[in-house]
């Protein structure tokens, strides 16, 4: 079977993830200098069951990068029973960056346009039933909602990570409401 032609690779992602980890690490250093492992533990606590997304080296790689950019400095602290550990301190440039970040109101983009246009194009070209496309998408989101919800229910009372999971649940609910409206519209359109 011939392979479908590949689309050109998208621009390398300047991921939300990487940016956020940089800013978060800087902000966590604003009160006191800290070891890399302390910062990592703080992040892991905030992410709860999602902490697996944070790979082990990422915090250290990011701290190195921040040091090269002059946003943090490090000093080695000798330990008797283990190799030396680095303690990181925020520089003035780092502090400026943190306050700019806290004031920044940019927000991850919700993206209904692509799916909307997919339905319009599918209907216009007679390629696929938009209602069927909506139903498949709804299934995906409901499975995601079920997972997020079970993860949230498994969190202990007062867990900060539960708040993150609640955010995932609420966004999926909003998307599912919109899919409901899509189903209604395209179902009616089919009758016209």
């Amino acid at each position: 079977m011939p392979r479908p032609a590949e689309l050109p690779a998208p621009e390398p992602l300047h991921g939300y993830q990487l940016r956020v980890v940089q800013e978060v690490l800087l902000a966590l250093l604003a009160a006191d200098p800290a070891h890399g492992y302390q910062l990592r533990a703080r992040l892991a606590l905030a992410l709860g069951p999602l902490a697996g997304a944070l790979n082990d080296g990422q915090v250290y790689v990011t701290l190195n990068r921040l040091e090269k950019s002059g946003l943090v400095t490090s000093t080695r602290v000798g330990q008797t029973d283990r190799p030396d550990r680095k303690v990181y301190t925020l520089t003035n440039a780092g502090r400026d960056r943190v306050s700019a970040w806290l004031k920044d109101t940019s927000w991850p983009k919700p993206a209904p346009a692509e799916f909307h246009l997919k339905l319009v194009a599918a209907a216009a070209a007679g390629l696929a039933d938009p209602v069927g496309i909506v139903d498949r998408q709804r299934r995906e989101l409901l499975i995601g909602l079920g997972e997020a919800q079970r993860a949230a229910l498994a969190e202990p009372d007062g867990s900060v990570a539960a708040l993150l999971l609640e955010g995932v649940v609420l966004r999926l609910q909003a998307d599912l409401h919109w899919l409901e409206a899509c189903a209604r519209y395209w179902n009616e359109a089919r009758k016209r």
Binding site: L13, P49, I143, G144
Partner: peptide, 27 residues
């Protein structure tokens, strides 16, 4: 819809998007 079953699907077998992706931790 309108008194009839118009679709049925199983909500098992996992999803294409992981929880970490849905939370915005992976792009």
């Amino acid at each position: 819809r309108d008194g009839r079953f118009v679709g049925e699907t199983r909500l098992t077998g996992g999803t294409a998007r992981s929880l970490t992706e849905m939370a915005g931790l992976e792009s």
